[in-house]
Amino acid sequence: MNPVIQQASESIGMGGMATILTLLFMVAFFAWVWYAYTPRNRQKFEDAALLPFEEGVDR
């Protein structure tokens, strides 16, 4: 194995990597769920759902 990668893997360990990545992924997941469901965006997304029916209409 590449000595640099080996050193990195030994210094942090697979468990530590997995922990950090799992936390990062969870934060990302909660972020996009919040973005989709926050009441502030409700009207915006209800309007967006109608876009396929607005062809040829300028707004």
Partner: peptide
């Protein structure tokens, strides 16, 4: 008719 839930489609995409 519009998609059932546009918000679900966002979660669908990113997930």
């Amino acid at each position: 008719r519009p998609i059932y839930s546009y918000r679900l489609s966002i979660v669908h995409f990113w997930g």
